[in-house]
Amino acid sequence: RGFLEKAAVKKMAKAIMADPNKADEVYKKWADKGYTLTQMSNFLKSKTAGKYDRVYNGYVIHLD
């Protein structure tokens, strides 16, 4: 289950990176699912340092 969630989160993160207008909708879905910042950090780990920082930081702001 965790692997599928991670894959889904990364897919949506890539969608945000391609079209930032989708961010609020995606952040709301993640918040509704109760994803914590720790979970998001783990889901968005990448071999490329900083690749998903913008998405993660946007989610931090959304939760605030």
Rank of each mutant, 00 (worst) to 15 (best):
Y56P: 02
W30D: 00
P20M: 05
L44D: 02
D32N: 11
P20I: 08
V60W: 05
T48Y: 10
V60I: 08
K6D: 05
G50Q: 05
A23N: 02
Y35K: 01
K22Y: 06
T38S: 12
I16F: 01
Y56F: 11
Y27W: 02
R1E: 15
M17C: 09
V55G: 01
G50H: 09
N21A: 12
I61C: 15
Y52M: 03
L4N: 08
M12C: 15
D53E: 09
G50F: 08
N21K: 13
K10W: 09
D32F: 08
R1P: 15
G2T: 06
K28Q: 13
T38K: 13
K47D: 12
A31P: 00
Y35M: 05
E25L: 05
T36Q: 02
A31R: 11
K47L: 04
K47A: 09
A7N: 11
A7W: 15
R54K: 14
L37F: 04
T48E: 12
M17S: 04
M40R: 01
G34A: 05
F43N: 02
W30R: 00
L37T: 07
R54A: 12
W30M: 02
Y27N: 01
Y52C: 03
T38M: 13
L44R: 00
I16P: 00
F3L: 06
E25S: 11
S46V: 08
K29F: 09
M40A: 03
Q39K: 04
K47P: 07
L4P: 05
E25Y: 09
R54Y: 12
P20G: 07
V9G: 02
A31L: 07
L37R: 08
M17Q: 05
T48M: 08
K33G: 05
R54I: 12
M40G: 00
A18T: 10
S46W: 09
K10Q: 10
N21Y: 12
H62W: 14
D53C: 11
A31C: 13
A49R: 09
K51R: 05
K28H: 08
N57L: 12
E25D: 12
A13I: 03
K29L: 14
S41P: 01
L4H: 12
W30A: 00
V26S: 04
K6L: 09
N42S: 08
A23M: 06
Y35R: 01
Y27R: 00
Y56I: 12
G50T: 06
L4S: 09
L63K: 03
Q39Y: 03
K6P: 05
V60E: 10
K11A: 09
K51A: 07
G58C: 04
I16M: 05
G2V: 08
F3E: 15
K45H: 07
F43Y: 08
A31V: 07
A8H: 13
K51Q: 09
K11Q: 10
K10D: 03
A31H: 10
D19H: 13
T48P: 14
V26G: 03
V9L: 04
Y59R: 00
F3S: 12
L63Q: 04
Y56Q: 02
A15W: 06
T36K: 04
Q39I: 10
Y35T: 01
H62G: 02
M40T: 02
G58Q: 04
D53I: 05
G34K: 06
P20H: 09
L63F: 04
V55S: 00
N42W: 15
Y27K: 00
Y56A: 01
K33W: 14
L44E: 00
K6C: 14
A8T: 14
L4A: 09
K29E: 11
S46Y: 11
D32G: 07
G34T: 03
Y56E: 02
K11F: 08
P20C: 11
W30G: 01
A13L: 04
A31Q: 13
D32R: 11
K6Y: 12
K6R: 14
K22Q: 09
V9F: 04
L37D: 05
T48A: 07
V60M: 10
R54T: 13
D53P: 01
L37P: 11
P20D: 05
D53Q: 10
T48G: 08
G58W: 02
I16N: 01
K11C: 15
E5V: 10
K6H: 10
Y59H: 00
W30H: 00
M17V: 07
V60R: 12
A49T: 10
K28V: 06
K6A: 15
A49S: 11
V26Q: 05
K29N: 10
N21E: 13
N57R: 12
D24H: 11
Y27V: 01
A18C: 14
K10Y: 07
K10T: 10
V60P: 01
D19S: 05
M17A: 04
G34M: 04
K51L: 14
K47I: 06
A18D: 14
D19F: 07
V60K: 13
S41R: 12
L63T: 04
K11W: 10
Q39W: 04
A13R: 02
R1V: 15
A23P: 01
V9Q: 01
K51M: 11
D32V: 09
L4F: 09
K14T: 07
T48S: 09
L37W: 02
D19Y: 07
Y52G: 01
Q39H: 07
A18F: 08
V60A: 12
A31K: 11
G2I: 09
L63S: 02
F3I: 06
K33R: 12
T38N: 09
Y59P: 00
G34P: 08
A8V: 09
K51I: 10
H62D: 01
F43W: 13
W30T: 00
D53L: 08
K22I: 14
D19G: 03
A23W: 02
A8Y: 14
G58Y: 02
K6E: 07
A13G: 02
M12F: 05
Q39A: 08
V26K: 02
S46H: 10
H62R: 03
Y56L: 13
P20W: 12
E5M: 07
A31E: 07
K10N: 04
V26C: 07
I16D: 00
V26F: 06
N57I: 14
S41C: 14
W30Y: 01
Y35F: 07
G34S: 04
Y52K: 01
A18Q: 11
D53T: 11
K45Y: 11
Y56V: 07
K45V: 06
L4M: 07
M12Y: 06
G34C: 08
A13E: 03
K22C: 15
D19N: 09
R1F: 15
K29V: 10
I61H: 11
L44F: 03
Y27T: 01
V55R: 00
L44A: 00
A13H: 00
T36A: 03
F3G: 14
G58K: 03
M17P: 00
A49C: 13
V9C: 05
G58D: 06
L37M: 06
R1G: 15
G2E: 15
Y52T: 01
I61Q: 12
N42D: 14
T38H: 12
V55H: 03
I61P: 01
Y27Q: 00
I61V: 10
